[in-house]
Measured scan of single mutants.
Amino acid sequence: PDDLEKRARELLKRGKNPDEIREYLRNAGYDQSQAEEALKRAL
């Protein structure tokens, strides 16, 4: 898994919901489609 996916998994483990994770990834400078893909793979 790429770093983005790892980060998404990490956040899920900490109890973040998908919307929070999307926002976090966007704020971290990733584009929307990258964030969506990583989140899908992590779920």
Rank of each mutant, 00 (worst) to 15 (best):
D2L: 11
Y24W: 11
D31T: 14
N17G: 10
L11K: 01
R7G: 04
L12S: 03
L12H: 07
D3Y: 12
L39A: 02
A38D: 01
N17V: 07
N27L: 14
R14Q: 15
A38M: 07
E5H: 12
Y24L: 15
E37K: 07
E5M: 15
E36P: 00
D3I: 09
P18G: 06
L43M: 12
D19G: 06
P18R: 06
D2E: 12
K13P: 01
E23T: 04
G15K: 02
A35Q: 04
L4K: 03
P18I: 12
R22Y: 14
E5K: 07
R7N: 07
R22G: 04
Q34A: 13
E10N: 05
A28G: 06
N17W: 05
D19N: 10
L11S: 02
E23V: 04
K13Q: 14
A35L: 14
A28D: 06
D19E: 11
R22I: 15
L39W: 01
R22Q: 06
D3R: 07
R41N: 10
E36K: 03
Y30D: 01
L43Y: 06
L39D: 00
Q32T: 13
Y24N: 07
E37I: 09
R22F: 13
A28L: 15
A35P: 00
D3N: 09
L4T: 05
R41V: 06
E36Y: 03
P1E: 12
K13R: 12
E5V: 15
E20D: 07
E36I: 05
P18D: 04
K6T: 11
D2N: 12
Q34W: 08
D3C: 08
K13W: 06
L11G: 02
P1H: 11
R9V: 09
A42W: 05
Q32S: 13
K16I: 13
A35E: 01
D3T: 10
E20Y: 09
A42I: 15
E37T: 08
D31E: 11
A8H: 00
E23I: 06
A38H: 01
R14S: 15
A38F: 10
L25R: 00
L43V: 07
E37H: 07
L25T: 00
G29I: 01
G29V: 01
D3M: 11
P1N: 11
Q34L: 12
L4H: 05
P1G: 12
R26T: 12
E20K: 03
G15Q: 02
I21N: 00
D31G: 09
K6P: 03
A8L: 15
E36G: 03
D31Q: 07
R41F: 03
R9G: 07
D19I: 06
L43Q: 08
A38G: 05
A42T: 04
D2S: 12
A35F: 10
R9Q: 08
S33R: 12
R26L: 14
Y30M: 08
E37M: 05
E5D: 10
D31K: 05
Q32N: 11
L43N: 04
L25C: 03
P18W: 10
L12V: 11
K40P: 01
Y24T: 10
I21S: 00
K13E: 14
A42R: 01
L12C: 04
A38E: 02
E36F: 03
L12Q: 04
L12R: 05
R26N: 06
S33H: 14
L43D: 03
A38T: 07
G29Q: 02
R22T: 08
E20V: 04
A38N: 01
G15E: 01
Y24Q: 08
K16T: 08
L12N: 03
I21A: 03
E10Q: 06
I21D: 00
A8N: 00
D31M: 06
Q34P: 03
Y30A: 12
L4P: 10
A38S: 04
L11N: 01
K40R: 14
G29A: 02
Q32M: 14
A35G: 03
E36M: 04
E20W: 12
L12P: 01
A38W: 09
L43E: 04
G29K: 02
G15I: 02
L43W: 05
G15N: 03
P1W: 14
L12G: 02
E23Y: 03
I21T: 02
G15D: 02
R14H: 14
R26F: 10
L25H: 00
G15L: 03
A8T: 12
N27H: 09
K13F: 06
K13T: 08
R26Y: 10
G15Y: 03
L11T: 00
R14T: 14
R22N: 04
A42L: 14
L39V: 11
E10S: 04
